[in-house]
Amino acid sequence: MKPAPFEYVRIDHPDELSALLTEHGPEAAVLAGGQSLMPILNLRLRRPRVLLDLSRCRALHDLTPTSGGLQIGAAVTQATVLSWPRLAHQVPLLALALPHVGNPQIRSRGTLCGSLAHAHPQAELPLCLAALDGEIVLRSQRGERRIAAADFFIAAQKTACRPDEYIAQAHIPCQSIDEGSAFLEVAVRVTGQAQVACAAIAGPHRLRLAVLAGQATPQVHDYPLLPEADLRDQLDIIARSLALSCASADDDAYRRQLVVSLGLNALKQAQRARDRRAAVDAQIMEHRR
């Protein structure tokens, strides 16, 4: 299990990356944290001719709070995002989801953008990006374009990123303080690849559920505040319509079933979180008065 030969380039400046991607196109692979790409190379499932390592590119290491959200550079690791002190306050969903990604030694190298680029159907971060209406900045010599999560994930491990482009950064909008979040996941082991994961956001007037159950791309569903029975009906519809092709029919059935029960639980938890947050806010207001 050793990689096939490749040319290696250590990128110091983003322009070098664009130039080389233009030069090599599909024959090149961007190496970020390597936590997905390196196993693939070791198993020789892919054989890029050139590896473009952006991990030491200073300009891509920025994690910047902006007016409406968080701007995360291509080289920012999942561990860095998780340890950003205001994460739980500003993007609670991400703070809840990130601990489900691999384990600490994987997150210390794996990047958030790399996970989005990899677009594995079982990955938590694409799901979160979709649930949060995040955006991705794609850059090439032709220029920059900003693309919404909904348009970015096209199929399993297939994104809108063209061969001469790379993800320069991801934008994650801050969650509003009257929202509550929940992230629930089930895997065969306690840790490991998710079979089903549900990201839920509850606002004062609407509910949102993003579901990962083995289908190709994350699915996001919005609902008004419905009673539980109606929500269950809605989830039944989602479960039925999921396009799955798991190893076995049992596995498919399991995932459909879990989408309903886990989805409901996630929505309930998110609403409780929202109500808790509101109660705390009310207390603070009371206190100020």
Binding site: Y8, R10, G34, P39, D53, S108
Partner: peptide, 13 residues
């Protein structure tokens, strides 16, 4: 100082 996998890192890195 950071714990990580050496099998998923290239020596040149």
């Amino acid at each position: 100082g950071v714990a990580q996998r050496s099998c998923l890192t290239l020596a040149v890195q």
